[in-house]
Structures are given as C-alpha cells and as structure tokens.
Design a protein around this nucleic acid. Sequence first.
DNA 1: AGAATAACGTGATATTATTCACAACATACT
DNA 2: AGTATGTTGTGAATAATATCACGTTATTCT
Lengths: 225, 225
Amino acid sequence: MKSEKSKEILKFPKATFERLKQYHALLTQLEIEQKQRYILSEEIAEMLKITPEQVRKDFSYLKTSGKPKVGYNISELLAELDELFGIKANDNIIIVGAGNLGSALANYKGFQNIGARVVAIFDKDQEKVGKMVGELMVLPLKDIPRVVRRFHVRTVAICVPEDAAQQVADLLVAYGIKAIWNFSTRILDVPNDVIVQNEDITRGLLSIKHMLAESEKRKYENSEV
Amino acid sequence: MKSEKSKEILKFPKATFERLKQYHALLTQLEIEQKQRYILSEEIAEMLKITPEQVRKDFSYLKTSGKPKVGYNISELLAELDELFGIKANDNIIIVGAGNLGSALANYKGFQNIGARVVAIFDKDQEKVGKMVGELMVLPLKDIPRVVRRFHVRTVAICVPEDAAQQVADLLVAYGIKAIWNFSTRILDVPNDVIVQNEDITRGLLSIKHMLAESEKRKYENSEV
DNA sequence: AGAATAACGTGATATTATTCACAACATACT
DNA sequence: AGTATGTTGTGAATAATATCACGTTATTCT
C-alpha cells in the first residue's frame, strides 16, 4: 500500500477506541432526540464520567473538529464515527437459543444504529421451533449452515444454557463462523482465528458490589473522623 | 519467592481488578467441573487470551501463592477472590421490567456464585403483574419501596424499554436506591452518589465488527504481498 | 473594530500498566 | 542425595494512557 499517512489516521489507542464506542452510543441518542445541534466536551465528559480533556484528546484522532465556545457538531461527529465503525455496511447476524435472552436480543431495536440485523434465530428444542419471536420464526439447528451461506452470516450470538455453550460453539466453528458473541459465562475454547466477544454480565454486578462496599467503607471512615 | 510484605491493604491497579473478575468467573467454572485441583498461569493465560506474566503479576497482589511446576490451587484462589469480592455477604437485588431481558435475568442461575439474589421483579404493565417469572410473581411498581425496605435492596437492574429508562431511574433514586444496573443503552442522569453500571451490549457487537474488518484487511494485505 | 471570553487542540509531563529477565524453589529423575 | 527441569514471584525496564498547561480561535460584548 502506498499512503502511510491515511493508515496512520485510522490508528488510535485501544483505550480511545473503547471510548469511541461510548461516544457513538451517546451521540446516537442525542441525534434521535434532536434537542441540540452541538455539544461541548464538558457535557460529554459529565455524562460519561470522564474528563473533558480526555474527550478532546480522543476527538483529536478524528477528522471532525470542534469550535471554541460552541462545541462539536453532533451530526458530523456521529457521521464520522458511523463511518469509522463501518456501520453503513450492514452485518447479518443470527442467534442460537430462543429462550428469554435470545428473544430479548431478537427484539432489540437498536441494532440498526450499529449496522447489524438479526436474520434468524435457532433453537434445539422442537417445542420452540416454529414459534414466532418478534418477526422471526424459530428454526431448528440443522438449518444454520443454509442460513449462514444464504445471508453471509459471520457473527453468531450464543444464548443457550451454560452447559451447552461449548458444544454450540464447536458446531458454529465447523460451519465456518468468524465471530462468536458469547452470552454465557463459560470461557469458550475455539481456534485462534475465531473472534470471541464475551458478554458475561456478572462482571458488572461484581463491580457494583465492589463500589457499594467502597462507599460503605468511606461512609464509616468519615464518621470516624 | 518470599512475600513478607503486608498484603492486608487490598489495593490493586484498576486493570488488575478488571481481570480478577475474569479469573473469578473462570475459577468458578473450574471448581464446578472438578476436573483438576491446580492450574498453571499459562493455562489461565491461554483461556483468557492474556500473558502468563500478567496472570502471575495480578496474583502477586493476592495472599494466595502458587507452587513452581504445579500452579495455583483452584479452591484456595477462588476462596480468596470470593472473600475479596464479598461474595459471602449476599446482596438482594430487584429487577424492573419483566420483558424478555428482565425475565432472562430473573431466571439466571449464576447469581449465587457472585453473592446475589433476585428477590422481586416489577413491571408497569398491568397485564404482566401477577404472572410468574421463574419462581417470582411480577409486582406493580408501587410495591418497589416496600420491597426495597423489607429486603434492604441497594441494587436494581433496569430492563425497561429505552425511553422509559430515565423515568424509572428517577423513581429509583427517589426511593433511595444506591446502585443502578442499567441494561438500556441510554446514558442515565443520576446524582453523583448513585452508582451506575452500564451493560450496553451493543458495544460488544461494535468490537466484533471492528475486529472482523481488521481481519479482512489483514487477509487482503497478505494476499498483496 | 478591538477586547474579553470560553472552549478547543495538542505537545509535554505524570501516571498507570505491561513485559522482561532472572533468582528462587518445588518436583521429577538418575 | 544430587541434578535437571519447569514454573513461580517480582523488581526493573518499557510501553501505553491520562492529565496538565497553555497557545489558538470563534463568538460575544462594549
């Protein structure tokens, strides 16, 4: 490749990338609300519990720039982030497991905001096959390869019971799936070229427990002094 | 390999804390499986896609130590992490929103592993009130204060539609709730002393999209060379 | 128009996190 | 028992990230 600079521009710190996802979610929300056209680094910072300097530093990796005393144009910023995350290029995904969690995902309306679409949901249980989940009919597992090929599915959300997660993952790997969105708490064993994104929600609750304990401690210490 | 330093001060880097949660989940799984008594830093590293040095460094903040050529005692390590996260001290939590997501949470069996228990689930919709979700009967929102007081609830999971999230948060704050586990993608505006843990799952999918794009690019570049 | 103001942009500096390198040591082997 | 081996534990070096400090600039005010 020729242009080294253009590559450089799309290269930001990992920590910045994580925050860009948060900015994207926030800006999407603001864009929908249509209450304001511009936003200050300080406003963003307050909402996301970070510093304004951090926000500006992050944005300095982008092409979009803000105006002193006015802030950043929400639409412009969101457009650049959309572009950056490849949101215009839609990704077809499927869900395995039509229990409550799988159904919740299937009904989730926000996927369009991040360039994703759920094209099918599968379940092992014959009782569930044929039932409707939102606008999708639950399909049997054997149909996975056909749907994957037909819709060029690269990403699968695993929403099955804990002890079935690895088994389903093995199946999906065999079908050539590129990325697994793992909603079980199990650590999946897959080949190195398969991406695994874990959504173990219990981690969030552990954080809460820890923060609650911390704030209790502070309260105690303060009353001591 | 001596460690005489006072480990009483349970202060570790933030990054380490994040990983301790992962170790905890992994060790819980291994403890349940009962397949092995010891685990090497290298095995942990491979499963969590980090380096063995990182694992050992993290564990160096703990009292538990490993044995050369043998590894770490799983039960001992898990016991220390349980203690650290205050898992023996049970936390009663409630869920607001009895849709698919709220129901999925209510039925989740892993809460006991992290010292949490769902004591009630609420919904605004009169149609849902009275219905059973797992072993819990859906209650009307007006019962929240009573349950919060009766069960000393400090933490609430918000599983309501996007545009109701802020409203519910305001309500909960008024009832004296200390921590909000936010499953909507909305950024909630709450007083500074209220903890908010966001579980915006779309971030995970954005990461997948990005990684897929990266691996596509690598493939392309390799075929160029 | 010129001055005052408030917010942006970013190089320099400080802080935090990861990796390296190797001594210490438990186990297995001869 | 002594030696070889492989893994731990951790201070030191390096790398990544966040914060600071301040020059720059668009807007508002007089």
